[in-house]
Design a binder for these strands. Structure first.
Lengths: 111, 111
DNA sequence: AGTTTTCATCGTCTATCGACGATAGACGAT
DNA sequence: ATCGTCTATCGTCGATAGACGATGAAAACT
């Protein structure tokens, strides 16, 4: 597995982290991400065919993922190309890990 | 017929993961978690004093965290005790990591 | 030309979120 | 018994999410 540069990734603000997590907090968007995983072709139509949602709904979900910075968007000729941003996803994962560690780290836990 | 097949290596369903991520996707709740981190005393009032939100609002956020299974709730005598569930948080972190890895796994990266 | 395909956006609808104040219940202290 | 404190819940409000169909634009294909 390749290592991503991660330039000061964990310095993200709480709002930023919250936005990315919000983008991840919907089953349809998780399904979309899985669909985009593995370097698939990633046009909107293909996602629509696998999700049983209206095209406009899928487009909205994709937009949310793009606005959160988790998916890159390339308006190719006709069929737009959506592609996962591995660094951004890795950054989110790192942020969550950091959060968990900071919450569970110290303390002899008197309770 | 399931809408989302979702072959999972983690035991959690997509809805479950989404719910936990939704619980994490609010700056106030992230701040609450940080407050609860390190085995603090964790009564509602203390959180209120550090968050500049109404007590009812904080109670709501705590409830969301409890319902997501990320925080444990012990209705002690007068002042309730809120406490992070480290295992649940770790599970969320693992789920996110698994998601990221499954999405970025084979990545030919040629467009 | 026209047609089809694909996509983004608009408008609209309902449901939920997020905030607050007010209130009631439970408890300790006086 | 009464007062004060802490908490959870209720009711309400505006804002937003999430879904859909309809529409328009751009590229590709007759």
């Amino acid at each position: 597995m390749k290592t991503f540069p991660l330039p000061q990734n964990c310095a993200a603000s709480a709002e930023d982290v919250a936005q990315k997590l919000a983008a991840l907090s919907h089953p349809a968007r998780l399904a979309i991400l899985r669909r985009l995983g593995g370097g698939r072709s990633c046009c909107c139509k293909e996602v629509v065919e696998h999700l049983d949602l209206a095209q406009s709904t899928v487009s909205q979900h994709l937009k949310i993922l793009v606005e959160a910075g988790l998916v890159r968007y390339a308006p190719e000729r006709q069929r737009s190309r959506y592609q996962i941003d591995p660094a951004a996803l890795a950054a989110v994962s790192a942020s969550v890990s950091a959060l968990v560690e900071s919450c569970c780290a110290d303390e002899g836990a008197d309770i």
